[in-house]
Nucleic acid binder design. Sequence first.
DNA 1: CGGCATCCTTAGGGATACTG
DNA 2: CAGTATCCCTAAGGATGCCG
Lengths: 162, 162
Amino acid sequence: MASTIRLAGRLDPREGWDADRCSVARAFDVVHTRSALLILREAFYGTARFGDFAKRVGISEPVAAARLKELVESGLLVQEDYREPGQRVRRLYRLTQKGAELLPVLVALMDWGDRWACDDGGPVALRHQDCGGVVHAELRCEHGHRVAADELELAVRAGAAP
Amino acid sequence: MASTIRLAGRLDPREGWDADRCSVARAFDVVHTRSALLILREAFYGTARFGDFAKRVGISEPVAAARLKELVESGLLVQEDYREPGQRVRRLYRLTQKGAELLPVLVALMDWGDRWACDDGGPVALRHQDCGGVVHAELRCEHGHRVAADELELAVRAGAAP
DNA sequence: CGGCATCCTTAGGGATACTG
DNA sequence: CAGTATCCCTAAGGATGCCG
């Protein structure tokens, strides 16, 4: 059946597999909750202030406070105090490099949701500023080849032996 | 500061934004838990049987049963009863097309975890079978251009007005 | 082997009210 | 505006035990 795939690979890396070392699990543990994910989405959209996060994500202030604190502690966001001349101090939350590199995760989720969880293709689209083309997250090898799921091979990295 | 980015775009799509229509949120709601994500990871690695999921993901049987049932109900996995001649019936869980298309999400998470949550670059690597090149999830527009975060533009889709 | 039933603990998240 | 303090509910997930 074409609807099921599996990663190719001669050796079975799952023997002696240490679940705690899995990068997928570790990445999930950092993001960790729905509210944190949506706060990151808003940060990508340019949101920077406490109240805007709570309002736009649709969560209560206590939850927003807890998630923002965790995200700062994890190094995904930085809090900056910022004062324009003659204005009161504003507190801004902004993405760090570490946080910004989660963008492909967000885009991949958006792609999937647009395709499988929306009637209409989703409320927003990402476009390439230069050419206007719609942007997606896709699998490419380091030589630039587009890689289909059945062309993947799973390899255990050196030093990752059981 | 180079470590913060924001999506370009002249109009602000967040006014009138309906949080429930967000594809990122909807996709997260389908996957929904850590254990479901790791079950999907195992499905990509070729795991198909109940006990293997529980053991390799590192979760209890009740949790595995609950997640597998949810994933089947969501249409990400199918359960097949399968009998080799002379053997007892085996039950297999396999990815559907809908589930298989979550692969870029998993790869993007793995990429991020390898880079930011592991000392050693992560336990496994994905390679392109044909050329051996390491595979990553990256942002490309429909014309094949590689798209950096600051080249993105957010556009409200037709019919997505407030 | 492939589950389900039960009990338990912890954490995510909403509501409300209050402070600097 | 940017939070904090309480209280409460629900769900994720482990442990144990049973069943076809």
